[in-house]
Structures are given as C-alpha cells and as structure tokens.
Amino acid sequence: MTDSDADSGWFESVPPDDLEVAREVIENGSAESPKDWPKQAVEARFAEDKDNYYDRLHEAANYAARETVKERERADDQQLKHSIRAMDDCERTANELAERAAEWAGSLFADVDAGIEGAREVATRQPDTEAERRAVSLAERAVDLADEAAAIRGFIERTAPSVAPNLAAMAGPVLATRLIALAGGLETLAKKPSGTVQVLGAEDALFAHLEGRAPSPKHGIIFTHEYVRETRPEDRGSAARAVAGKLTIAARIDHYSGDLREEVHEELRDRIATIRARADADEEGDR
C-alpha cells in the first residue's frame, strides 16, 4: 500500500478471490481513520452486498491470521535451534568447571565429590581463606550453568510441542529439537528424505563412508530414541529405518498442517513391536 491509499479500505486493490493479496493488505495496510467499509466495498463493486462483503472479510481475515500464525510459529523453530545449542554448551561447560572446582576444592576441603552434585555441595561451604573463596566461587559458577541448562531444557520442553506436536510426541521434545537443529529448521527437516533423517548427526561417519573408509552408518542422533537403542543390535538397522520414516512423516505433518495425528504414532508402535517380535521368536527357536 502506498500513502495515497491511506484512506482506502483493505479491499480496494484486492482482486476478487486473491487471498494472498488480501492477506498482504490486511497485514501491512493502514488507514488514518475507519470508514463505512462495507458500504464502500459494495460501491466499489468488491462485493455484491454487505452480507457478501462480510463473507469475504471472514475468509480473508481467517486466511491472513492463519498464515501469519503459522509463519511466526515456524520462526519458533529457530529459537529451538539456538536453545538446544546453548543447552549443550551450558551442560558441557558446567561439567568441565565442576570437575575443575572439585579438583581444586578437594585440595582444600575433605570429602569433595566429583560432578555437578559435588560442586553443589562445595558451593554451600563457608570459605575461610582467599583460595577457598575462589574455589567455592568457581563451584557456584558451575552450579549456575547447570541450572541454566535445566532452565533451557524446560523452555525446549514447553516450546517443541507447539512448534512440532507430532515430532515432539514421537521423539520427545529434546530429540525433536535436535533433529530440527541438525536440519536447520522444521521446514528443511520436513523436506529431507527419510534416509537422510536416519543419519542426521552422523555426518562424520557418513563422510568416512563416502570416502570409502567406513561402512555406511545405520543411524545418527536417532540412536538416542529408545525404539532404536533398546532394540537388539542385529535389528537396529530396521528399527532405525522405521523410526526415521515415521519421524519424517511427523515433521511433514507438523510443517504442513500442525495437528496431532494419532495414526502415525500407532503405526510406529506396531512396526517396532513386529521388529522386536523377531528377537522373541529367535529366542523361542533357541530353546
């Protein structure tokens, strides 16, 4: 819209039935003051009568709001991407610092345990000397970072189900977020073939394979999914393929429609049950 349109209604330059243009004008247009738009729209022959005008406005307003909501929620996938990386950084750094703090504090106090829990305990001690003050303070930093990681995890657990309800239900919010981050976003994930999704996160192994230095990887980050991890090694390839296939479908539903579809989840449960039944059958055979 240009300035000369400052006092025209949203429908003024919208071709009939062009929802995209209507959306653009509803969203980005403006007017100095409201007018009797239904009347003007009928006069401008945008609509046959007021009822017809309201029907069109209903359609256009719903379309505009729906598309924008989708777009903004998609932008949330980028927030997920940052948050999972930040969470990993915080966890890794917290562990490193906790280790250093435990080593230091261990030279000053009795009974110092390793890890974040050890650091938590050190952080509560009363330092007497300058060295003790520094060691305790370092432990506090480690604890703070661990707490930050936990807070970010909470954010991911709340956000992922709204960005990608099916993916989050199937993979859990954290793995869903890792997949989104590895792919670069929900849209790019939705557009990847399931064979690629299967090895996301195993890029190094895949590269080695392509150079002829290693066998092709059977799974990437989806190894952390219990359906893969807890399936016996000889069936893991099939399980990984099944999980990757359904995760890909889940990502597509999430990207294109966004509603929870119970069937996909059930199909995966059935498929995994079938794969695991092989192990049981083999055991029977061994007896």
Binding site: S30, P34, D36, A61
Partner: peptide, 27 residues
C-alpha cells in the same frame, strides 16, 4: 472464528489502531 461467519480475527496490536482502521468499520 471458523464456524462463526461474522467473527473476524485480526492479529494486531490494539495500541496501534491505524494498523486495522482499514479493516474495522466505523460507527
């Protein structure tokens, strides 16, 4: 809003009425 054909959702900031005055009618 979907089943209510005279309900028009507008994703707008109510502090900036000029951004929807081209949609919302007067009087």
């Amino acid at each position: 809003a979907e089943p209510r054909d005279r309900l028009f959702p507008l994703l707008k900031d109510a502090r900036a009425p000029e951004t929807y005055a081209h949609v919302v009618e007067s009087d």
